[in-house]
Design a protein around this nucleic acid. Structure first.
Lengths: 358, 358
DNA sequence: CGACCTTGCAGAAACGTGCCTTCTCGCGAG
DNA sequence: CTCGCGAGAAGGCACGTTTCTGCAAGGTCG
């Protein structure tokens, strides 16, 4: 039986289009891709025939031939294995959303991949590049990708001198120092920290900045650590922090849920916010605008980061930049709300809260 | 020059492994894929050589040959075009997360795709199947996918008699009826609805269920609609609803942010929750446990839905089910909190709230 | 002892593109 | 009349797998 005539099953291929249009395969390819030298008449004719047959080029064949798949990997490595933290922290959701939009705008799609280096999944998808969120020190997934020559851009400075294509990050140190100054200005005498046990650069840099600030102003550090991926542990750690004999009169929580955790803990101990306890946490959740009281948050601008990461990565894939690693710092944004407002001097003796509307 | 010896650039191919191991290409392929009849000695030898060379099979070539890519598309079509609502509603984040986990567990990866049928992206990726969240009536993206023979499983019943591979949904009608009964039991006399202007089945079914309930109990419907993808419009609609002359004494909001929107609107009008206004909204956000007061929510169990959708889709891809469409209904969960608690009969005249702890 | 089966492996044909090379044809200049 | 030239289009290889088919050697059985 003839190959070219009888499509036994499946979609139409470029051969069928060529046959139907009465031209060669080369002509079809050139016509559809805008290459070669063809009169407009031929071009439009081929396009029309292709449309009529419902022709869609095979992505697999094109990828095999060109070496470009148009796919970008997206992975979160730090916080545990199986269940991604996409939903846990609004940061990841925002960042992923921005990254997805930016990628699509340039014709790429994002593939969500596991933190663990499961060969059966990672090697089954042809990636042009990968975005890694919060890589750990000397991250093995990153190392393997780099070894195979796949461009990697990370959200957060990669530790362990990994030769990535680039990274985007906030100036966490400056952010924490500024935030602690803000709390001190608001009257805090002893500022506590709720931090994580993980080794990602965000946690590390923020914590050391806190310690340095303490040293500078001569305050003893007061902090509790917990595994950030475990929401229950966060509540427990918040409780521990407020139960200490050297209880702080202001707390900064590094992770998104810390705000509500600390607020709940404060209620349990009968502490009023902000009268007895000033509160700030790092979060992108708009919910903190409507808690009781509203909580001051530090925004890391995940949308800008997600966009920047993808732009850098695609530039590298398409060979637009020079070969050198791109490093980009995004400013943070402290959104001041009631929970960290300066105690008004007149309210030395704080009465029970008045009824309803403030 | 000889092809087989000089790897000019790029990674090692199966040919190189064959040459280095002193066997044929066939043997390498069989050894690595556990096929053919080979003694264990040969198998392990080939594996070792492959490891030594850092061999990774080309996903593109394998896809081209086998016709399976191991990729599943994930798309949200309803709520506008560009910026996905992944983050806006906790529902999507949860559902996507569950779907991702389920897919990875079975060796598939998820590709995030735009709602619009941008050819340059959709046709550039070889999909084994697609998950569509909340397809609109006669959704064009779904129609095109089905036309090309790609399995499609949707979250939400597809309208317009689209011949999809299957769908998973809640019994929205039962959920709404039960919830309205709950509000009526708590003393509501006139229940209002905050709904959307979109044509997805969730909005449509929920709204008609509300209208039917009103008819049954003989209440005039009181509702406001707004485009669900616009958060500001939601706040405005909430305000409109409470500003009406026939102001309801209980409201159900169909969308995630409605809870806080309604709460804020209630404050503006000096309405106490739940004394003057009972509140329920459909949300997966845990934040509603710690608002003031905590708000009763209807959970659609997105995790179970995401998992089910992926299982059905992969079963269809791998030819495990019979050919018939699979339809699966997931029960909902009404999480009752203070905002819809029965008014205690004794508190006819409600005093200003007491200080602090309840 | 020959027919037949089993084991262990190799050859080579696809899969559907993209692109490099070549071929043909018409036309104007020498 | 011939030669060069450029536009237009076709031929065919390569991308890296999977897998169908086949082939030789050795063992078994009537």
């Amino acid at each position: 039986m003839s190959r070219s005539t009888g499509r036994r099953l499946g979609r139409a291929g470029i051969r069928d289009v060529a046959a139907a249009a009465g031209v060669s395969i080369t002509t079809v390819s050139d016509a559809l891709n805008g290459k070669g030298r063809l009169p407009d008449a031929t071009r439009s004719h081929v396009r029309e025939v292709a449309d009529r047959l419902g022709y869609r080029p095979s992505a697999a064949a094109r990828t095999l031939r060109t070496g470009k798949s148009g796919l970008i990997g997206l992975t979160v490595t730090t916080y545990g294995d199986e269940p991604f933290t996409f939903t846990e922290f609004a940061y990841f959701a925002e960042m992923a959303r921005a990254a997805t939009s930016a990628a699509l705008a340039r014709g790429y799609a994002l593939v969500i991949l596991p933190a663990t280096s499961r060969h059966d999944v990672w090697s089954n998808v042809a990636l042009d590049g990968t975005v890694v969120i919060d890589p750990a020190d000397g991250d093995s997934v990153v190392a393997e990708l780099v070894r195979h020559g796949i461009p990697v851009v990370s959200d957060g400075r990669p530790g362990g001198a990994l030769p990535v294509t680039g990274w985007v990050d906030n100036d966490h140190e400056a952010a924490v120092l500024g935030l602690l100054d803000h709390l001190a200005d608001a009257g805090a005498r002893r500022i506590g920290l709720l931090t994580g046990t993980t080794t990602d650069t965000y946690t590390r840099l923020s914590t050391t900045a806190y310690l340095r600030w303490c040293e500078r102003v001569g305050q003893d550090p007061v902090y509790e650590s917990y595994p950030a991926h475990d929401p229950c542990a966060g509540a427990v750690a918040a409780d521990r922090l407020l139960a200490r004999p050297d209880r702080p009169d202001a707390v900064y929580g590094l992770f998104d849920p810390n705000g509500t955790d600390l607020l709940a803990a404060a209620r349990r101990y009968g502490l009023r916010v902000p009268e007895d306890l000033l509160l700030v946490c790092c979060s992108e959740s708009t919910g903190y605008a409507s808690t009781e009281p509203p909580i001051t948050t530090l925004s890391l601008k995940p949308r800008r980061i997600g966009t920047a990461v993808v732009q850098i990565l695609i530039d590298a894939i398409e060979g637009l930049g020079d070969g050198r690693p791109v490093e980009q710092v995004i400013p943070t944004d402290l959104i001041v709300r009631t929970s960290s407002q300066r105690r008004s001097p007149r309210t030395t003796i704080s009465p029970p809260r008045g009824p309803a509307g403030n």
